[in-house]
Design a protein around this nucleic acid. Structure first.
Length: 645
RNA sequence: GCCGGCGUAGCUCAGUGGCAGAGCAGCUGAUUUGUAAUCAGCAGGUCAGGGGUUCGAAUCCCCUCGCCGGCUCCA
């Protein structure tokens, strides 16, 4: 039968295996890099017969993304086999391929130690060098169950209980057997470039009420070079970890005495966030928001009314004084609602957009704290938009524009997700449908790609989330837009319509950066601490060559600082090389060198961060260069902001 | 919160039952230097905190706090 293999056609008899079919066309070299076969959407093992209906075959190479997935999945089987050899009583959980690698969960008496990890990795190398075939078998469900029961694999049995098909596939290699859909590499020898990376606990099936298993993480690649590249990338990424760079650059730190999750901002860090906040404040005014401010503590009775007490109370800090209970705000909405309700509102007043850089406190569980990314006290660039239902979509589009402009300003790549109704939720189906439709059509009107996160909405409404990547590839939610029909109901918020009747407004909760702290964390890693000039806490450092140049250096510094440039001066008795080195380490955009020549003709010799020499400039020219540098990113993003104004 | 690991000078780390160390940073002095580290000296410690074992604990055991990697939860 004629079938297409890649771009060539060949006569493939019925009953041929995929390997035989591909062998007709591919060179030996290519065949060696092939570890599975693709028929339409189906991925098949190489020793699988070509399905009779299949007319087009594609080889799957080791270095393709599908190939790597297969390789990593097989690596997880080898890991499981190694563990079973060394810890025969260990029970298997599940072991999938993940981004950059794989993991496998085990229930093992006493857990693993880091030393065990080394032994396991050695055993895996042994299994790889034995190069035993991975063989697929299809078993009747009962057969599979009794086999797994024999092997005392209770977790696997639980998975089998939920399978409705009559038969299941299992893979075996040298006596080790695992329930698995496949496909896999032909033999263990294909998996050579791997490393076990870490050990962790993980709840069985992700449920904190179920037993905690031991998870072993590993990474696997097509060849040793790719593995090394990956490990080097990891090290690189660790160097830009904001938890390291923050204290190093004098931005912020945490103190055991202050308490976990309570960041302390040093002068440079406080300056950096002030610049961000200043930008945000002005940008919100420009976009029709009104700044408001609510109190830090509000009466507990108000939190009861809003539902926070019941739904969020575990995360809140409460206190009592003169027999009156107060809750430290974990969200900013309540004061905004009070402001809305302070007057009679008509349809003409809407939309109202209340903006607040609101500091909130949430008692996050100790184990989830993570540098600035997850803290117990943080500041949201929060706003609540209260509008008529017919204005909803336009408001959402406006927010999406805002988000897009800001993300472009920082050159961020981001992923958008639409989260739909969770099981535990309130409100009518109609309200939810309307809200989801509004979010959806705003996204589509905007031509934005987005994923769906089913059932992950807030309990009061659906939301759009924007996630940013940190240095290690972990995603952090920053911007979010949430549609809320519940609080307007609970607080009986109304507006007078054109018809003179009372109507219910819709409330949008939204943040653009999310939390200033988290955003700063992501930002530090994004720029590896080398901020663009408009954000850099120190934009220029005047550097002298000898003590003779100090008076002129001081004059330049005073001039720049007086003009709004964040300038420093380095008068230390050190060699120029040392001072330049320090300026580089401190990631200051411009070093302005002052020596005999410069003092003579009243110029500075400019060196940009990274080493580029920009020649001699007068003070005025240096100021002009820095201020242009600060405005440029906004022009590019169609915005107009300057810290100088 | 759960599983595992870790905590020695401001930073990076050595010291694993017997006198608390090194490099960098800091301070002082010498040097006056042209684009990523000048030299010398000095100072710096409740070995996270508390309890226990021991003739003797940074080292072994227990508790607490904090940090790291995950899980669960989230901006």
């Amino acid at each position: 039968m004629e079938r297409l293999i890649g771009s060539q056609s060949a006569d493939i008899p019925e009953g041929s295996t995929c390997a035989e079919a591909l062998g007709q066309v591919l060179s030996g070299k290519k065949l060696k890099r092939t570890l599975a076969c693709k028929c339409g959407e189906d991925l098949l093992d190489l020793d699988h017969p070509v399905p009779s209906g299949c007319t087009e075959l594609e080889p799957v190479y080791t270095d393709s993304s599908e190939g790597l997935d297969i390789l990593r999945h097989s690596a997880s089987h080898i890991l499981a086999q190694a563990v079973k050899r060394l810890f025969p009583s260990a029970k298997l959980g599940t072991g999938p391929a993940i981004e950059n690698g794989f993991y496998y969960d085990f229930d093992v008496e006493g857990g693993f130690t880091p030393q065990d990890l080394e032994r396991i990795e050695e055993e895996m190398q042994r299994i790889a060098s034995e190069d035993v075939p991975l063989q697929r078998r299809v078993l009747q469900l009962d057969e599979a169950k009794s086999l797994l029961r024999e092997q005392n694999e209770s977790y696997k049995l639980e998975l089998l209980e939920e399978i409705e098909d009559e038969s299941v596939s299992v893979y075996s290699q040298d006596g080790f057997l695992d329930l698995c859909r496949g496909p896999h590499v032909p033999s263990t020898g294909y998996v050579r470039a791997f490393r076990l990376t870490s050990l962790a606990g993980a709840y069985w099936r992700g449920d904190e009420n179920r037993p905690m298993l031991q998870r072993i993480y590993g990474t696997a690649w097509a060849d040793e070079k790719q593995l090394k590249d990956y490990l080097r990338r990891l090290e690189e990424a660790q160097r830009r970890d904001h938890r390291k760079l923050g204290p190093q650059l004098g931005l912020f730190d945490f103190f055991e005495e202050a308490g976990a999750g309570m960041p302390v901002f040093y002068p440079k860090g406080a300056l950096l966030r002030s610049i961000l906040e200043d930008f945000e404040f002005k940008e919100h005014l420009r976009r029709g928001y009104e700044p408001v401010r609510g109190p830090q503590l509000l009466q507990s009775t108000l939190w009861q009314k809003s539902g926070h007490y019941d739904n969020y109370g575990e995360n809140m800090y409460f206190t009592e004084i003169e027999d009156q209970g107060f809750g430290l705000k974990p969200m900013n909405c309540l004061a905004h609602i009070l402001i809305y309700k302070s007057d009679v509102r008509s349809y003409r007043h809407l939309p109202l957009r209340y903006f607040e850089l609101g500091k909130v406190n949430r008692h996050e569980k100790s184990g989830v704290l993570h540098g600035l990314m997850r803290v117990r006290e943080f500041t949201q660039d929060d706003a609540h938009i209260i509008c008529r239902p017919d204005q909803l979509q336009e408001e959402i589009v406006g927010i999406l524009h805002f988000i897009q402009d800001v993300m472009r300003l920082f050159d961020f790549e981001y992923a958008m997700e639409l989260s739909t109704r969770p099981e535990k939720s309130i409100g009518s189906d109609e309200a939810w449908d309307n809200a989801i439709h509004a979010l959806e059509s705003a996204l589509e009107a905007h031509g934005l790609d987005y994923g769906i996160n089913p059932g992950d909405g807030a309990f009061y409404g659906p939301k759009i989330d924007v996630k940013l990547k940190d240095a290690l590839g972990r995603y952090w939610q920053c911007a979010t837009i949430q549609c809320d029909f519940t609080l307007p109901e609970r607080f009986d918020m109304t507006y007078v319509g054109q018809d003179g009747e009372k109507h219910r407004p819709v409330m949008l909760h939204r943040v653009i950066l999310g939390a200033i702290e988290r955003f700063l964390g992501v930002l530090i890693e994004h720029y590896a601490g080398a901020f663009p000039t408009w954000l850099a806490p120190v934009q220029a450092r005047v550097v002298t060559i000898t003590d003779d140049h100090a008076p002129f250096a001081q004059e330049v510094h005073d001039y720049l600082r007086g003009s709004g440039v964040r300038s420093e001066v380095d008068l230390r008795n050190e060699k120029l090389g040392q001072k330049i080195r320090r300026a580089q380490e401190d990631k200051i955009p411009y070093a302005l060198v002052v020596g005999d020549e410069e003092t003579g003709n009243r110029t500075v010799n400019v060196r940009a961060l990274g080493g580029e020499k920009l020649g001699s400039l007068t003070m005025e020219q240096a100021l002009d260069m820095i201020s242009r540098d600060c405005r440029e990113p906004f022009k590019r993003g169609g915005m107009n902001y300057s810290f100088f104004d």
